[in-house]
């Protein structure tokens, strides 16, 4: 037990939690903004996946990690725009459109990778770049983290400020809560939701790029591995509040980091991997039950 606690409270472990949580935090911001506008995008997983490939390909061809990142974000935003056209204009069912985006990304990434490199699994044939780490005065935990990890945690207060202190942010929240009322007040529901979805694309793109240009230094097939879905759960459990949702995203990251370390403790790591999902389902149920009780009163 003592060994176990030693691991959890070690500085290396805290550093690992930040590393592992970075893509989940980005994705959580993506899920949060779109969900706040009343357009729950389950295609975040796919947006991230596209970005992770485009980042690698872009950085390999331009020989610049930053340009790679730019391309990654642009690709994710474009796909998110496509999603918004189908959902908002053509009235495609939003869940099915999200499933389609995930499928599209999963097929397209492998297809493009194969056409470019002749390999279907990894992009090791491409000389891609990684984004820099920041030394940060040799302070343990914080030092040596990727620049995108910093951006992820800085984006949390920014998103919070955006949602609560700016006009567009207020519209987004209003549209999500009372779409019809806000339409009569003269705000375009369509434009507001589109803005939210494009922002969702930006954050998904950053999260995806981190996976292949920070966390790992290459693209691997289906490398997002459910992180987009976890983010949707983090947003749901955090009730759409940026800070609370981020804490939950960190909790997911911590269990993920923990399952990497538990090999030495005779606890089957499949069971550790199980914890965040069970916790989420339980919390979602409790939250919904609580809401129902309130409504009945």
């Amino acid at each position: 037990m003592l060994e176990f606690l030693k691991i959890i409270f070690s500085l290396e472990f805290l550093g690992a939690v930040l590393r592992v949580s970075t893509p989940i935090v980005f994705a959580t911001m993506a899920a949060l903004i779109s969900n706040r506008a009343g357009v729950q995008n389950i295609g975040i997983e796919g947006l991230m996946l596209i970005a992770s490939l485009v980042g690698v390909v872009g950085s390999a061809f331009t020989e610049s990690a930053w340009l790679g990142l730019l391309f990654a974000v642009v690709s994710s935003v474009l796909l998110s725009w496509l999603f918004s056209v189908f959902v908002l204009k053509f009235k495609t069912n939003i869940v099915l459109a999200g499933i389609a985006i995930n499928l599209l990304a999963s097929g397209l990434t492998v297809f493009i990778l194969y056409i470019l490199t002749g390999d279907k699994g990894v992009s090791s044939g491409l000389a891609s770049k990684t984004l820099p780490v920041i030394p940060f005065f040799n302070i343990p935990v914080l030092s040596g983290q990727n620049v995108l990890t910093w951006m992820a945690f800085i984006s949390v207060p920014l998103v919070s400020t955006f949602l609560y202190k700016t006009k567009t942010g207020t519209y987004i929240r209003a549209v999500g809560e009372h779409g019809d009322a806000i339409a009569t007040a003269g705000v375009s529901v369509y434009k507001t939701q589109r803005t939210a979805l494009l922002l969702c694309g930006v954050f998904s793109g950053l999260g995806g790029a981190y996976m292949s240009m920070g966390y790992l230094s290459m693209f691997t097939k289906d490398m997002i591995a459910g992180r987009g879905f976890i983010a949707i759960a983090a947003d749901a459990m955090g009730m759409g509040r940026p800070v609370l949702s981020t804490l939950i995203a960190l909790l997911f990251g911590a269990t993920d980091a923990l399952s990497n370390q538990l090999g030495s403790f005779n606890i089957p790591n499949e069971l550790v991997s199980l914890i965040p999902y069970v916790v989420t389902i339980t919390a979602l149920a409790m939250y919904a039950a609580n809401n129902k009780k309130k409504q009945n009163q």
Partner: peptide, 9 residues
């Protein structure tokens, strides 16, 4: 509770 999110989990 939304069956979509809980079924994804």
């Amino acid at each position: 509770a939304s069956e979509l999110v809980s079924s994804l989990m």
